[in-house]
């Protein structure tokens, strides 16, 4: 097996899920990153954490790494699909400005979790990233290890329609996939999450299978759509009120709630294709306003270059 060193310590058993997380935290802490805890509200991706979205803006140096639980209600499979979850974990790293040796730093992080890059086929395969709801885009790759996509690697160019100067680099590791790879298991539910000295193991299934079943049922069948439609409007109004008070951080918190509410409605199948576009636009315009407000009231710079399209587009 691959994970004989680093994360797995002295034992001959492969790294557990929590070993992988702790190894990544330790590694990126050594690179000078602030190790944060997950954003405490529902988000669809590690990128949505304020520590990435908002902190990507402005001239200051910023380095962080954190685990983020991500909610994707439409991806629920009632716990029956070995590869798909409506709640899963990313490990997110953001470094601004992007270090010149970031690719090597990344390969070093693989070593830290027991994957020796020299013994595998590690590829950087073109994958341009774009988030319509955040008005953000960047260029980069999906990183493949022996044909498996394990990390999204992106140089952010714009967030909220604003140019990122300096440019941050984002790494988003798919923790379940990486651990499945390291442990050699074919179902996410067979991942060993923790292992005691007495040999007692807890699997991903022990921890999360019920969660997947129950939330899949809730997301697809139970969610009260009238309530959710009203909730979307209420959250949007609250975000506006915060923006009016020049409070971009709480405003953004409500925007994230709008996002999740929209995703729940989507999973209930009650958003038609035309409405979908309209909802995405509503979220995007709020996200952009949050970014503008953040630049103005937190960073302290007038948001002059909105939608400034670099020559890169």
């Amino acid at each position: 097996m691959d994970a004989q060193n680093g994360a797995a310590g002295a034992t001959s058993q492969p790294a557990t899920f929590q070993d992988v997380i702790m190894a990544l935290q330790h590694y990126w802490a050594e690179q000078g990153c602030v190790i944060l805890q997950p954003y405490d509200g529902a988000v669809g991706a590690g990128t949505n954490h304020t520590a990435t979205t908002l902190r990507s803006l402005g001239p200051d140096t910023w380095r962080t790494g954190y685990v983020q639980g991500c909610r994707r209600p439409t991806d629920g499979r009632y716990g029956e699909n070995p590869n798909r979850l409506q709640y899963y974990y990313q490990f997110q790293v953001l470094m601004k400005p992007s270090p010149d040796d970031i690719q090597d730093l990344y390969l070093g992080s693989l070593r830290a979790i027991g994957i020796e890059p020299d013994e595998h086929d590690v590829r950087f395969v073109e994958d341009d990233w774009e988030s319509p709801t955040l008005g953000a885009w960047g260029l980069g790759w999906e990183v493949w290890i022996d044909g498996m996509e394990v990390t999204q690697f992106t140089y952010f160019q714009q967030v909220g329609g604003f140019e990122c100067r300096p440019v941050p680099v984002e790494l988003a590791y798919g923790l379940e996939r990486l651990t499945m790879y390291i442990q050699g298991v074919d179902s996410v539910y067979d991942i060993v999450w923790a292992r005691g000295d007495d040999g007692v193991e807890f699997t991903y299934g022990d921890v999360y299978l019920d969660n997947e079943k129950q939330f899949s049922t809730y997301n697809f069948e139970i969610g009260n759509t009238d309530f959710l439609f009203a909730l979307f409007n209420d959250c949007e109004a609250e975000a506006k009120a915060c923006l009016d008070a020049h409070l971009p951080l709480p405003a953004y918190d409500w925007v994230l709630k709008c996002c999740h509410t929209f995703n729940l409605l989507d999973a209930r199948g009650v958003i038609s294709a035309t409405e979908r576009m309209a909802y995405i636009l509503r979220v995007r315009s709020m996200a952009k306003e949050c970014c503008a407000s953040y630049l103005e009231y937190v960073v302290g710079q007038a948001p002059a270059d909105e939608d400034g399209e670099g020559e890169g587009e």
């Binding site: 400005p97 992007s98 270090p99 010149d100 140089y155 160019q157 440019v167 020559e311 890169g312 587009e313």
Partner: peptide
């Protein structure tokens, strides 16, 4: 087709020049 900036540089290229 698309090019990018990186770190604190103003230059654009398809991916960072190292």
């Amino acid at each position: 087709p698309r090019s990018c900036r990186w770190a604190s540089y103003d230059e654009y290229f398809v991916r960072p020049v190292r």
